[in-house]
Each structure stands twice: as C-alpha cells, then as structure tokens.
C-alpha cells in the first residue's frame, strides 16, 4: 500500500512550551486512523499540520510524497476534506450552499456538476433532499453533523480530517453517524484521520488507532492489537474498560459479568 501522509521528525513548540517532539508517522492509503489521547496531548495539532493550518517548528510533512511546505496551501487544503468539532456550518448559507462550498471554490463555472455533487453527498450521508434550502439553525444536531460530513466530502478529496465531529450529538445519533461514516470509508477508500477522546469510538471506527500522550506516540496499531497487547501503562489504563466489555449476542449476554446485563447484576437489583 502506498503511503499518503508522512510525518518526519516533527517538533512543534510555542515559545518554550513544547507540544510535540520527535514525532514520526506514516499513514497508508485507505486507512482510517483514529487519534486518541488526553486533552492537550497534541492530537488536534497533528491533524491541523496535515492541511497546513498549523506549521511545524521543525521537521517535514509529506502528502502524496510531496513536502507540503513547497505546496500552495490553498490548493493543498481543497484536496483535503476537513470537518471539525460541532461541524461549524456557515450560519448564513443554506444546506446546499454549505455542502457546495468547496466545489464552488474549485469549479465556479460548472454549476450542474456542483449541484449533482450536493445531491449525491446528501444521499450518501442520509439527508433528505428537501432540507437543501434550510439554514443550519433550522436543523437538528444530527442533521448538522451530516451536513458537516457532506461538506467535507463534497469535493471528493483523497484525505479526510475530522476533529471530534460527533462531540456534540446524543448517543443514538452518534451511533448512527459512526456507522454511516464507516460505510462511507469502506465505499470510497478515502484516507481518514479522526481525532476523538472516546476510546470506544476510536476502536470502533479505526483500522488503526494512534494513542498519544504529551506529544509522543504511545502506540500505533490495529484496534485488536491495542486491546490484546497494550504497549504502555498509559494505553493499558486507556483500554482497561474496553477490554472487559462484552460484545455478545443477546441470549449470551447474561454470562458477561461486566456489562451490567448479567444475571448477577440483574438479581442484585431485585
């Protein structure tokens, strides 16, 4: 598999405050990387370095084999989908205008192409067509997230950066969005970098999980491997609860002591 994103010896510091040091990472095409760590560990910083919103103090980042320092930042960003916390839709634009934002920056003239892209992506993220003319404040939280995802994907980028996009929605909606996002990833083969602080989300979505602490990589491996062989104390603590979760069929749930669905727990309550 081809490497699409590569970090080489990255250091990021604000004055004397070092956030990231000696950071090396290479990401293969089509992978879904979830990045998890305590707050302030530098996970958002890593994400924003990919599309040049944050410049590293030293070291180089390569996207598609090209050093992004040498690239036109605007063009770089247009080929990378970007969805951030709370989705942040443009409040003065309709759903259609929001989704069409990047395509309209790219191909101003070709309006039919843009319209088709909007319809296609609304369908993929599960938004009914009649929401097109609505403004963001007229949408539910889940619909707003879906518009945010559609907007990030509308120009069919090769890379998608997501910074806690489902942070502000309820549990049930989040479940649905996660499932849909996973399907989109499988269908399009897009490379995803997904920042989260929720370990179950990281394990569920990622083909690989990157665990960070104090600007350093604790472990970078598949979800299964992370659960089976946590490399450090930090990772152990992080996955402790998840290791003891039971994903069993309904009729066998009673034999799981930790899920709260077990007979013992059930009896205790009575």
């Amino acid at each position: 598999m081809k490497t699409v994103i590569e970090f080489k010896n990255i250091k990021k510091a604000y004055d004397d405050h070092v956030i990231i040091d000696g950071f090396n990472l290479s990401i293969k095409k089509g992978e879904f990387i979830t990045i998890i760590g305590s707050s302030g560990c530098g996970k958002t910083t890593v994400l924003k370095m990919v599309n040049g919103l944050i410049q590293p103090t030293s070291g180089d980042i390569f996207v598609d084999g090209e050093n992004i320092r040498d690239k036109n930042q605007t063009r770089l960003r247009r080929n990378i989908g970007y969805a951030i916390q709370g989705s942040v839709l443009f409040p003065h634009m309709t759903v259609e205008q929001n989704i069409a934002y990047v395509p309209s920056l790219l191909n101003k003239r070709d309006k039919t192409k843009t319209k088709a892209a909007v319809s296609k992506w609304m369908h993929i993220v599960g938004l009914p067509e009649d929401l097109k003319q609505r403004y963001p404040f007229e949408l539910s939280g889940g619909q707003q997230q879906r518009v945010g995802i559609a907007r990030a994907l509308a120009a069919s980028p090769d890379i998608l950066l997501m910074d806690e996009p489902f942070g502000a929605v309820d549990e049930i909606t989040r479940e649905q969005l996660q499932t849909e996002l996973k399907q989109i990833h499988e269908q399009t083969g897009i490379t995803v970098l997904f920042v989260t602080h929720d370990i179950s989300e990281a394990l569920k979505l990622g083909t690989k999980v990157l665990v960070m602490n104090h600007g350093k990589i604790e472990q970078f491996t598949s979800p299964e491997n992370l659960l089976q062989h946590p490399a450090t104390e930090f990772v152990k603590k992080l996955v402790k609860k998840e290791r003891r979760m039971c994903h069993l069929p309904e009729e066998q749930l009673s034999s799981c002591d930790y899920s709260g669905a077990g007979e013992k727990g059930h009896l205790d309550k009575e």
């Binding site: 951030i84 443009f90 990030a152």
Partner: peptide
C-alpha cells in the same frame, strides 16, 4: 467558522 473556511481551502 473562519478556521473551518480556511481549512477547506
């Protein structure tokens, strides 16, 4: 909002 717009190119 501005960062989102910038991040999208």
């Amino acid at each position: 909002i501005l960062e989102a717009a910038k991040g999208m190119g």
